[in-house]
């Protein structure tokens, strides 16, 4: 067994300058630095490589690295802008920025649309909506008769698909959310409002304690 004399690098690959990330997001520099501590914790829970793997994301969300869920998969994939199977620091901060209470509502609505556009066709299709309802019921151990599920999906679709072409485009989605603002309630995390106060334990003196 050898011992490591060399000092670990302060930042892992994929690290981005907090000043630049703060300029692009509702976070200030110290909040980005605080979130880096959370990111380090999440990204080292299974594989310590400075990137959040899907299993690490599942572990953080469900306390179980093997618990898969359609919606967690979609959140992960929507964070993973580079589509390389991992969430890097910059991706993490930019995506979380959308969940900030001060982020523009428009960006929350668009993010939700991307989440629900399962096959990334630019539309939410009826089959996708039904698949999500079934996934939610399965996740919640709820059983509904097939025709009840069809009724829920049909009713929602007839409300949202105002053009009546069998799919919900982003304009219809925006209009639908404006009529039903509670649909994007889960796109705001109040915790992010002042993360350095809410999570003082994340604020470590990483820049000065070395």
């Amino acid at each position: 067994m050898g011992c490591f004399l060399s000092k670990r690098p302060k930042h892992t690959a994929g690290y981005e300058d907090p000043t630049l990330l703060a300029a692009e997001t509702p976070f200030n520099v110290s909040e980005v630095e605080a979130l880096y501590e959370l990111f380090k914790k999440l990204s080292s829970s299974i594989v310590d490589d400075g990137r959040i793997h899907k299993e690490e994301f599942q572990l953080a969300l469900f306390r179980n690295k093997n618990k898969r869920n359609l919606f967690a998969d979609r959140v992960f994939d929507t964070f993973d802008v580079k589509r390389n199977g991992v969430i890097e620091f910059g991706e993490f901060i930019r995506a979380l920025g959308i969940f900030h209470p001060n982020a523009p509502v428009e960006s929350k609505i668009e993010f939700a649309f991307r989440l629900y556009d399962l096959r990334q066709t630019g539309f939410i299709e009826r089959e996708e909506l039904k698949e999500m309802v079934l996934a939610l019921l399965h996740e919640s151990d709820l059983v509904l008769l097939e025709d009840v599920v069809e009724t829920i999906v049909d009713k929602t679709f007839s409300d949202a698909d105002t053009k009546g072409d069998g799919k919900i485009d982003v304009e219809e989605w925006k209009e639908f959310v404006s009529r039903n603002p509670s649909l994007i309630k889960n796109m705001t995390l109040p915790y992010l409002k002042d993360i350095t106060l809410a999570f003082p334990s994340f604020v470590v003196t990483s820049e000065v304690d070395d």
């Binding site: 999440l42 953080a60 969300l61 919606f71 979609r74 979380l96 996740e139 679709f157």
Partner: peptide
């Protein structure tokens, strides 16, 4: 609320997989 009267997206938004708040819990 009877599920049949619910908006499907409202139902979906209750998914645990969409609740990122858990990331911030110790």
């Amino acid at each position: 609320v009877a599920p049949v009267a619910m908006n499907a997206f409202e139902l979906i938004s209750t998914s645990q997989g969409l609740n990122l708040g858990t990331l911030f819990e110790k």
